[in-house]
């Protein structure tokens, strides 16, 4: 996954919101990143540093919520925990698990002033 594009996507969302709502400064950005979204958290932090500089969100605290990976196994017919995409089902060992949770990458909310 490409963390620089994600960081730019986050900035765009923040700037769109600033243009709509007229706030001057963002003190906190709350993100939801799924465990299966393939995001390198360290790299995203570094990219946000670069991208948010000189923006309304320069220096903002980044709150990260990591949602766990879950999937539906066609073999077992039930929801199972998933550590990584394309891995075998922890119950039956089959490769028929479809991710149902943990792939999200969202900006949830902002604290602004």
């Amino acid at each position: 996954m490409h963390e620089m594009s994600l960081a730019e996507g986050i900035l765009q969302i923040v700037e769109d919101a600033a243009a709509r709502q007229g706030f001057k400064r963002v003190t906190e950005v709350r993100l939801e990143i799924g465990a299966l979204a393939g995001v390198e958290i360290e790299a995203l932090g570094f990219c946000l540093d670069v991208v948010l500089k000189d923006s309304v969100a320069e220096g903002a605290r980044i709150e990260l919520e990591k949602t766990p990976g879950t999937g539906y196994c066609l073999g077992c017919g039930e929801t199972v925990p998933v550590n990584a995409l394309y891995e075998a089902c922890p119950n039956c060992g089959g490769y028929q698990v479809q991710a149902t949770g943990g792939t999200e990458m969202r900006v949830k909310d902002l604290l602004v002033e």
Partner: peptide
């Protein structure tokens, strides 16, 4: 003077 703004948008939504 801080307030919360709900966003709920996909990062790749645009």
């Amino acid at each position: 003077q801080e307030r919360m703004v709900r966003i709920e948008q996909d990062i790749l939504g645009k």
